[in-house]
Design a protein around this nucleic acid. Sequence first.
DNA 1: CGGTCCTTCCCGCATCATGGATAGAACTTT
DNA 2: AAAGTTCTATCCATGATGCGGGAAGGACCG
Lengths: 253, 253
Amino acid sequence: MSVEGAQAVRRALTILHCFRDNGPALGASDLGRRLDLPTSTAHRLARTLVASGFLEQDPATSRFRLGPSIVELGQLSFHQRGLHRAVPELTQLARVTSTTVDLALRGGNEVLILVGDSVRREAGIGLRRPLHSTALGKVLLAWSPDPDLAGLGPLPALTDRTIVDPSELKSELDLVRDQGYAVNDGESAAGVRTLAVPILDHAGNARYALALRATPELITIRRLDWYLTQARTCAKALEILLLPPEERPTPAL
Amino acid sequence: MSVEGAQAVRRALTILHCFRDNGPALGASDLGRRLDLPTSTAHRLARTLVASGFLEQDPATSRFRLGPSIVELGQLSFHQRGLHRAVPELTQLARVTSTTVDLALRGGNEVLILVGDSVRREAGIGLRRPLHSTALGKVLLAWSPDPDLAGLGPLPALTDRTIVDPSELKSELDLVRDQGYAVNDGESAAGVRTLAVPILDHAGNARYALALRATPELITIRRLDWYLTQARTCAKALEILLLPPEERPTPAL
DNA sequence: CGGTCCTTCCCGCATCATGGATAGAACTTT
DNA sequence: AAAGTTCTATCCATGATGCGGGAAGGACCG
């Protein structure tokens, strides 16, 4: 009961979410253990998911993996959002800047990387990252409709530079909003510097975030402005490709 | 009751499936009408889906559309299946043959087109087609583990050439299995000829089907062999790209 | 060959989803 | 501009529905 009224459905969807973190194939008892459910319940839910094509069951090992319906709807939504049109832009940006490029949006309380540059595809597609310790996350938070930092819960430290204090994060976000971009300097992993800019809609919310990622030796402070220009140019192009005209921000006053 | 034990979950998944046929955004009462459910039930299920990120609700119109989790899991599964590695092959094949190329698998009782050539992306990505009136479908049926034609139900006629008689379909499938490929000559739409070949696994089942589509003037009978060779070469490459070594068919005896 | 862990099915209980009714907002028609 | 229509969203009593302990049947390992 509590807040949302649909126990069985919620559990079934959680089962689907299990497959994002873990290996490609999970058994019924794996699922039960991971969700703290009786095996029989997990098994029944999984079977229902199989019946609708959202999971499929390996005939040999009888373990579950994501099914055809997921790919189908994923491709459909990918195209409906126009994300396929973003791929060439990102590839171009990656080539020009020699960096790794990611396009992300907010999914719950995490950053959801949807499209990587196709030069280094393995990058992080389908990956989730924390909001507080990534440049992408900072951008998504800074231009968020509900700036509820408390809702994030504790901020785990990934390196010794990670911002763990909520009030410190708050002033960081103010800075990000002020200067129009975010930098992550080894707060997520040592030796990685990331630069992120928002793709804003007419309401001033960040619909997507675009990031360039490389070593600090490549993205030096003095060259930052150049990378920023490149990123912003690309972001402007993506704004047109991804947002319908009526949702684009009104041109600067 | 009946066969699968999860009413609420089944209904929720059906809601998701609604979004494949119809426009991108549906209201709660649309959903209720389409699934023949009370509005309140449809609304509650949709809310649960929103809470898990499988749907999202437009703040302005409060209508629902596919959410970030769908794109996330879709991309993840797309990559886990190695489908991104198929894209360059398909593009190449489309260029060489000047045809429209589709890669599909079976989803329930329909053909599920997953990847089109990127030359003409709009082709039919995320589209479902009948099994009995497409070359892709014939291939998927001909090398299917359960050749249950009765389970298909009635075979609707899309043109006057569509095979509507189950026993006729059965002999057509025998022919397809014999010659190793399927042809659809205006059975799905007039003036379209399609040639499809399977990508088989070690158990002899068609995991994917690959099709070339063009006008009968282009794919003439005398040139059929050439197109067939092109398609088979590509299928062989895809077999290696898409199937793990232990699931590939053993080399011809 | 005994042990362990897995998948799968069964069935009685009480929890949980159900859907009619309602309030109110938004949009359309007259 | 007001009346009418259609929509979203919430409530709550009812009983249908999903729940999960248990046990049978395999598969794999030692």
